[in-house]
Amino acid sequence: MKRAFRGAAIAAISFAFATEAMAEEWNVSLWGKRRAFTEHVEKLAELVSEKTGGEFTLNISYGGLSKNRENLDGISIGAFEMAQFCAGYHRDKNPSITVLELPFLGVSTLEEERKISQALYQHPAAIADLARWNATLLMPSPLPQYNIVGVGDAPATLADFEGLSVRATGGIGAAMGAVGAVPTSMSATEVRQALDSGVVKAVAFAPHAHMSFGTVETGKWWTTNLNPGTVNCPVVVNTDALNGLSDAHRDALLGSVDEALDYYIATYNGATMDAWGPTLEEKGIAQVTFADTEIAAFKEAAAGPAAAAWIADNTARGLPAQELYDFVTGMIGQ
């Protein structure tokens, strides 16, 4: 009996160790709070856990692992296995994908943004660019065109942006600079304080971020149709961690990306946008719509020069910049 009991105990301990060895936990670095912008990551975690019977889990942290501008650095050293970041936060670190942030590209829907982003993420130049940080591009965070919430007198024409300090990153910042505004780059978590203190007078965000980061609590006006562009904020994984997964766990992760993105887009186009109009009305925010002639002049002033500068700068870096630009613009409207 003692031998039987001892054998059973050893078997139980061995099973426990085997189960522990099979388990996989990844840390995921996000920022802010759970919102429309992070729903694909939340859904991905849910799907991966379901498909692996809880053996592979994604532990999502909102700001507890890293600052948002340092997420790519954290990935590079293996401080965590997955992270989200925005290309415009550090254009020098990920120049290949900043082509998606050029102003007035003409992308019109989240579905199109997703399609073009996913295609670019598979381009050899983008893969090599992020490989410098031991990062593999996993999925985009498709966002609609940005517009501006501001304080003070609402602009009646684009000339009224002259000298106005605007939080705007990447290509949106370049576009605002083309009409005389003073673009300021800062992370989303810094924006509310900057607007409240007068460091900036206006903020360019997608609707979900205006709601999530509180600009609608202070703002007095909103531009309905400026639409200068959007930002590209991928989710990446540490390449060594990805390669270290078992086949089953890797398949569960990669095989869940499209379903997670489907959920994200449905949520954004549904609940998020359904809440936006009522929020503007509730907060008494005036809606500013510019004439078509004004928008055409804005596009002429911003689009061509920004694209030419991007191509020249990144060709000098050694990127096939013209090829990347043609690759992206060739997919728009297709």
Rank of each mutant, 00 (worst) to 15 (best):
Y263Q: 07
S246L: 08
Q334P: 12
I10N: 04
A154M: 05
P144G: 15
M22F: 13
N59D: 15
A174E: 14
T230V: 03
D153F: 00
D292N: 09
A306V: 04
A45L: 04
N225I: 03
G198Q: 06
H208C: 13
Q287H: 09
A4C: 00
T109P: 05
A252W: 03
H208P: 00
V166M: 08
V48C: 07
M186C: 04
I75W: 06
E101A: 01
G244K: 03
W276R: 07
Y121G: 01
G270T: 04
V182K: 15
A301T: 04
T109L: 06
V216D: 14
K43T: 09
G171T: 05
L130T: 12
G170C: 04
P144M: 11
T293C: 01
V151C: 05
L65C: 05
G63P: 08
E323S: 04
V99Q: 09
S212A: 14
S76M: 02
L245Q: 05
S66D: 10
V257H: 00
G106R: 12
G64C: 07
S197I: 00
A181G: 06
T223Q: 09
K51Q: 12
L280T: 09
T109R: 11
K43L: 02
V41I: 13
R35Y: 11
T289W: 09
I295R: 12
A156W: 00
L254Q: 10
W31C: 09
E111T: 06
G53A: 02
E294H: 05
G150R: 02
G214I: 08
E281F: 02
L130Q: 10
P207N: 11
T98I: 10
V199N: 13
Y325K: 03
A209E: 15
G214F: 10
N147E: 06
K220T: 15
T315F: 07
I13V: 14
I116E: 05
E259Y: 00
D196Y: 06
K299N: 11
C86F: 11
V28Q: 05
A178F: 01
A23F: 09
G88Y: 12
A321D: 06
A188N: 11
L164I: 14
N238Q: 02
L44E: 04
T224L: 14
E259G: 04
P140T: 02
I97E: 11
S185Y: 01
E190L: 13
G244L: 03
T230K: 11
Q334L: 13
V231K: 00
L130N: 06
P155V: 06
H210A: 11
A87N: 14
L130V: 07
G53I: 08
V166I: 13
K43F: 02
G63C: 01
A36Y: 12
L242P: 07
N68G: 00
V235K: 02
E20K: 14
T293Y: 05
F17D: 04
T52E: 10
D247H: 01
K2W: 10
